[in-house]
């Protein structure tokens, strides 16, 4: 347990002392500070727009952070030859990878919470200036943020998986971005293929589509922006399913990553 905790702490220190990340977070705060100015352009739906913009800004920043951390998690250790000194300590590679993942996941969550708090201030300020007919649904906004965090933690596990099989930074980096895009759109494509259009395609290609659909993470369910903005109710059952899915997906991917990482050679 000590070993695991020390790895998480070490990962956390690595992230907190990374200059690139400082820059990204500075940009993030700037973006959120710009939200009131931007949302007043709409004149009428200032509150709705400020919520949308804040959540989108946070989402974008979390995407950057996730992809960067996931892709560099193992790559940097190989590139700088840190692994020769760390993996030769009596830590198993699985625990090391798990520590890395948890450190990154914690940081993504922390980032989300901090930026969320900043956004909450901004949203209150801008909605106070131009009050709306709809009350602000703080609970739903929080939920949307939480779902977003879960989504990016899933994406981080994807990034870590890619980085355990690759020696470069670019492959895991772009592959996670690709998976993110595919995962965000896969639900629509799935419904499209399942419908009328699918009948016109060959059954083989439909099967292939479906296989890919099940393989890549499905991010559509994690988009709770609309309920957050308009207060549309969210079904608890669906929510439970979504979060269980995230946990299961991460678990499976971490098992696979641990397998590939444990068999890897570090000459």
């Amino acid at each position: 347990m000590d070993v695991f905790r020390a790895t998480v702490v070490m990962t956390f220190r690595w992230i907190l002392r990374d200059r690139v990340l400082h820059a990204i977070l500075a940009v993030a705060l700037l973006m959120i500070l710009l939200v009131p100015a931007l949302s007043t352009f709409s004149m009428r739906q200032v509150q709705e727009l400020s919520i949308t913009l804040s959540l989108s800004a946070i989402s974008f920043v979390l995407l950057m952070v996730t992809v960067l951390l996931g892709a560099s998690s193992v790559w940097r250790d190989i590139e700088r030859r840190y692994l020769a000194s760390v993996l030769t300590l009596p830590i198993s590679r699985t625990v090391f990878l798990l520590g890395r993942f948890c450190g990154i996941a914690c940081f993504i969550a922390l980032c989300g919470v901090v930026l969320g708090a900043a956004a909450a201030v901004i949203i209150s300020v801008s909605s106070a200036q131009y009050p709306s007919d709809i009350p602000i649904h703080w609970d739903k906004i929080g939920l949307a943020l939480l779902a977003d965090i879960a989504k990016y933690i899933m994406l981080a596990s994807v990034g870590i998986f890619f980085s355990t099989v690759s020696t470069s930074f670019y492959f895991p980096f772009f592959a996670s971005i690709g998976i993110y895009l595919a995962g965000s759109g896969s639900q629509e494509v799935y419904e499209y293929v399942s419908g009328q259009f699918g009948k016109e395609m060959g059954s083989v290609s439909v099967a292939l589509f479906k296989a890919v659909y099940y393989l890549i993470p499905n991010f559509a369910a994690f988009d709770l922006k609309v309920p957050a903005i308009y207060g549309v109710p969210v079904l608890p059952a669906g929510l439970g399913l979504t979060f269980s899915y995230a946990v299961l997906y991460c678990a499976i991917l971490l098992c696979v990553s641990s397998y590939t990482f444990s068999r890897r050679q570090f000459p």
């Binding site: 070490m10 690595w14 030859r81 840190y82 020769a84 000194s85 760390v86 030769t88 300590l89 009596p90």
Partner: peptide, 18 residues
């Protein structure tokens, strides 16, 4: 097996942010 072993790698590198 590494519990009782102290290892110095060739051209070592350690987490340099620590």
């Amino acid at each position: 097996c590494r519990m009782k072993v102290g290892y110095l790698p060739e051209n070592p590198a350690f987490y340099d942010f620590l």
